[in-house]
């Protein structure tokens, strides 16, 4: 009714917008590079990492081994490529668990807002939230022994309340919209409304959050493998490579440098992509949030 409301501090500078779309591209390039590395590793790696080559152990980067070799003489580039597989698989599955369980729970809680069911779902979420994924992994490992599956379950469980909370809070605000009321007037039930009207309108937000949880999953997987709670040898994993490199760090820093960089760049790529996607989906947020 009035002219658009304006705050004195508003309208972000074009500098941000330009940088943001550039960050989306950079993020995509980084992410796709590592996804490609993981995929290529299924058919080809420079060296077989199951063969040990003690004669060539702990060599720095060279024309033969671009990123050098480790303490068993294995090619670090090959191990990083296969490690990308582990990282990405664990993170993707963990995000999948979180979404497949968390989103329906959030939708359900929002549809029955204020009810006992809502209360129970949200309290349970709070409870799960009190267990950092590392602690879940510790518990699972002490009961069943370490493995990549444990890492997936531990990170996945931690993702459930993340998605459930986000879904519930965005669904709650959508439930206030008149078009939901119109759908109720048209006799549609809560399940149908959630499916037809709520879910499509939170998909973008879920994609953004999924990207962020994906990157957190990569970090968590690296941490778990580093302390031996994740993927076990002979499966290559970035966190394990770092753990192995620690003893040699004073005279073979390349062993620590490259796997760490791989983690850093993948996570950075995913985060940039998440930020970029958020801006793309919602221009109102075009101001560089977390």
């Amino acid at each position: 009714m009035s002219d658009q409301s304006l705050s004195p501090v508003q309208a972000s500078s074009t500098l941000w917008i330009a940088l943001r779309s550039r960050s989306l591209i950079l993020g995509l390039v980084l992410t796709l590079t590592f996804v490609a590395a993981a995929l290529i590793s299924f058919v080809w790696v420079p060296y077989d990492i199951t063969t040990l080559d003690i004669a060539n152990k702990i060599k720095g980067p060279s024309a033969l081994h671009w990123l050098g070799t480790d303490h068993y003489g294995r090619d670090i580039l090959s191990m990083i490529m296969q490690g990308a597989r582990t990282s990405i698989a664990v993170a993707v599955l963990a995000v999948g668990i979180g979404m497949l369980i968390g989103v329906p729970l959030g939708l359900w809680a929002a549809a029955r807002r204020g009810s006992l069911l809502d209360e129970v779902i949200m309290r349970t979420n709070d409870l799960v939230f009190a267990f950092p994924s590392l602690l879940i992994a510790v518990m699972i490992t002490s009961a069943f022994g370490p493995s990549a599956t444990n890492a997936i379950i531990a990170i996945g469980i931690f993702n459930i309340p993340v998605f459930a909370r986000l879904t519930r809070s965005s669904a709650l605000s959508l439930w206030q919209r008149d078009y939901i009321l119109a759908a109720r007037v048209a006799g549609k039930g809560a399940a149908r409304i959630s499916w037809e009207h709520i879910l499509p309108n939170i998909t973008n937000m879920m994609i953004v959050q999924g990207t962020i949880q994906f990157s957190l999953g990569i970090l968590a997987e690296a941490g778990l493998s580093y302390v031996g709670l994740g993927a076990q040898p002979p499966t290559a994993s970035w966190g394990r490579m770092l753990a192995d490199s620690q003893t040699f760090i004073s005279f073979a820093p390349h062993m620590a440098l490259f796997p760490g960089l791989a983690i850093l760049l993948t996570v950075l790529g995913l985060n940039l992509m998440g930020d970029g996607l958020r801006d793309l989906f919602d221009p109102k947020l075009r101001r560089g949030r977390t």
């Binding site: 919209r177 008149d178 078009y179 119109a182 007037v185 048209a186 009207h197 499509p200 309108n201």
Partner: peptide, 27 residues
């Protein structure tokens, strides 16, 4: 049937007009 106040919040932004106006057929 009913018509609401807010012309901006009354429609699911992801559906086309044909789907929007036929929603009451659900009844």
């Amino acid at each position: 049937q009913v018509v609401f106040q807010d012309p901006y919040g009354s429609f699911n932004p992801r559906h086309r007009v044909a789907r929007l106006v036929t929603e009451p057929f659900h009844l």
